[in-house]
């Protein structure tokens, strides 16, 4: 089992904490999901005067691992500052590093990402970089000190699922020892199951649960799918083939008549 900077997670479900109708519904969704990690974003302004502390106290009270993120940061400097704030507020070395390069697709700026990852790693952070499925970028992130990679499934909040199956499969094959997390773009539990079937170690999602009509029920649906996908990967699935393969013997049957 691949671990995350020395931490073994009970399951591969990382759930975001934004956009829920109310904190009470958020808490219920976490309870029903059994998610092992909560991601939480720090807006810079509220970090400075600790204004968000009621909300953060509630997140801490969920009793799961906390992965603060630098959501909404567009530059290396912004991301690094936010990461420092997060370390102080949540007392953790973990940081989900987001450096947004394109406002419309929220695509990561992989150049800024690599630089910020290097700066933060040197400063003792354990970086979870939000990246694409590009293998060269992935390699540079590992060289910068990252021990986890989080490629996107599809643009943040789009709910499109795994857009580049080939690329994600290649990434798994290319980095067999690196914990990989599908981060962003999932809309349905079946897509999360698919990610786990590919051999990914976890999925990270937020909108698909928070914006569902019944967030807690959707959280539970994702938990079930993630568990199923993980079991399937461990069970070593059959290889697909082009021809039908009868599962009962045909010898002695009148199949030639």
């Amino acid at each position: 089992m691949r671990d995350f900077y020395g931490t073994t997670l009970a399951n591969g479900f990382m759930l975001g904490t934004a956009q829920y109708p109310s904190p009470a519904i958020l808490a219920e969704a976490f309870k029903r999901s059994g998610a092992s990690v909560a991601t939480v974003s720090l807006r810079r302004e509220s970090g400075q005067d600790r204004a968000g502390q009621d909300f953060w106290a509630m997140i801490k009270g969920l009793g799961v691992h906390i992965l603060p993120n630098t959501a909404g940061c567009h530059s290396v400097k912004e991301a690094v500052t936010t990461a420092h704030m997060a370390r102080e507020v949540f007392d953790t070395k973990w940081i989900k590093l987001e450096v947004i390069g394109e406002e419309d697709t929220l695509q990561p700026d992989v150049f800024g990402l690599t630089e910020a990852a290097r700066i933060l790693t040197e400063d003792g952070f354990q970086v979870f970089p939000y990246t694409t499925e590009d293998l060269v970028v992935a390699d540079k992130l590992l060289n910068a000190g990252c021990e986890v990679l989080m490629p996107w499934g599809a643009p943040i909040g789009s709910g499109l699922g795994l857009n580049n199956l080939f690329g994600l499969r290649a990434m798994r094959a290319h980095f067999p020892d690196v914990p990989l997390v599908i981060d962003a773009g999932l809309g349905l539990p079946s897509q999360a199951a698919q990610a786990m079937e590919l051999g990914y170690d976890a999925v990270l999602l937020n909108t698909a649960v928070a914006k569902a009509g019944d967030p807690a029920l959707m959280a539970e649906a994702f938990a079930t799918a993630i568990a199923a996908g993980k079991q399937a990967a461990e069970a070593d699935p059959m290889e697909p083939r082009d021809m039908a393969a009868p599962s009962t013997p045909v010898i002695g049957k009148a199949f030639l008549s």
Binding site: P23, R43, E45, S46, A51, G52, Q53, D54, F55
Partner: peptide, 11 residues
Amino acid sequence: MIEAAASKHVT
């Protein structure tokens, strides 16, 4: 809608 209490200035 920002989960934060302090409210002096608009960003």
